[in-house]
């Protein structure tokens, strides 16, 4: 269909982006103003925002790939924790072999972590699709399983040869503010930004995306045109698990470098709020994750500022309270995939 060309470009951009675009512009102006006032703090906060948002974006991508196909995944937390743990152990033990370089070791460890997440995704699919278990209970099983297993096998005093290091992207990294924030990051952070674009394209512009969305909205419509609903759900939930796995290895291989008990600290659940706030779209999730990342970054910043009058526990509550506010304010207004949470039964 031909679009009428009489509408001016700016109007069409406004229609597409609307208030969101205005907010983005305001935020950008705010950043520039704050940068002029204090270069160092602004750069630190924004870099920290990107870092904090990375696992949330990945977790939200995991959530939305599943939910777009109709599977609610409340086990993201457990998938992340387990992947963080197994990825870390892989880093330790592959490193001890002494066969591979540090980089190769980390690469293999990351792959193993991703596979761990994917495997738990497969387990979730098995529980929800084949056993037709309640999906929320299925996710809870994964969470409790991950806490139990990582707790039992956790040992202190393991050493690794290192973690993933920032890669400066040549001259781009020298741009003030933008350089250090966007173009001087470790690999998983870059990969995450690429994945947001890739998942968006896949979801809305490919056959796989069309079929996934159909399965999540109206599975019997997909079934009657010969699409295997169960297979789609299995495949997507497993792939999604890989995203949660990547979020997990981000924690142990890129951000922290070691494993601690319960180190995911609710990020898997916050990621679900991010997904909802982002209206089940990758770019939406990315924007929402930046907001949450910013809240967490400010929290660290407060602690550095010294003249602290608010008890740190109250600052610690911020991301969780923000999640509640977001859920309370936005759930009613956005529309989740219609068939999520419901096991598909033929007729």
């Amino acid at each position: 269909m031909e679009t009428t060309t009489s509408i001016p470009i700016w109007k069409r951009i406004w229609d597409r982006l609307g208030i969101l675009g205005a907010i983005i512009i305001l935020v950008l102006i705010g950043i520039v103003v704050s940068f002029i006032q204090n270069q160092q703090v602004t750069t630190a906060v924004l870099s920290s925002t990107i870092r904090q948002s990375t696992p949330l974006v990945l977790g939200a991508l995991c959530g939305l790939i599943g939910e777009r196909t109709g599977i609610i995944n409340i086990g993201i937390e457990g998938q992340m924790l387990m992947a963080a743990f197994i990825g870390y152990l892989a880093n330790v033990y592959i490193g001890q072999l002494g066969v591979f370089s540090v980089g190769m070791t980390l690469f293999l460890a990351a792959l193993i972590g991703i596979a761990t997440g994917a495997l738990l995704g497969l387990l979730l699919a098995f529980m929800s699709v084949t056993l037709k278990m309640d999906q929320i209970i299925g996710g809870t099983v994964i969470n409790i399983l991950a806490i139990g297993i990582t707790g039992y096998f956790y040992q202190v005093g393991l050493t690794t040869q290192g973690k993933l290091q920032p890669i400066a992207l040549g001259r781009l990294a020298d741009i003030p503010l933008v350089g250090p924030v966007l173009f001087d990051n470790p690999p998983i952070t870059y990969i995450t930004l690429i994945l947001v674009v890739v998942v968006h394209y896949m979801l809305f512009y490919t056959r796989w995306g069309l079929r996934s969305r159909a399965v999540g909205e109206y599975p019997s419509a997909a079934d009657t045109v010969g699409i295997n609903v169960y297979l789609m759900r299995y495949v997507n939930t497993t792939i999604a698990g890989g995203f949660a796995g990547l979020a997990g290895v981000f924690l142990t291989l890129e951000a922290v470098g070691s494993f601690e008990r319960l180190m995911t600290n609710g990020r898997g659940f916050v990621a679900l709020a991010v997904m909802i706030f982002g209206k089940w779209t990758p770019f939406g999730a990315w924007g929402a994750a930046l907001l949450f990342g910013f809240a967490t970054a400010m929290q660290t910043q407060f602690q550095f500022m010294g003249n602290l009058t608010i008890p740190h526990q109250f600052i610690g509550m911020l991301p969780y309270l923000l999640t509640i506010v977001v859920l309370a304010g936005f759930v009613g207004r956005s529309r989740p995939p219609a068939a999520e949470g419901i096991p598909y039964e033929k007729e």
């Binding site: 490919t206 069309l210 159909a214 109206y218 997909a222 045109v225």
Partner: peptide, 28 residues
Amino acid sequence: HQHFQLVPVMTVAENVMLGAEITRGLYL
């Protein structure tokens, strides 16, 4: 079918081609 097997939030064309999509490479 008696109960229409159409995805309510998708367009007519998307519904028609679902399962027998026309693609150029990956692109729908």
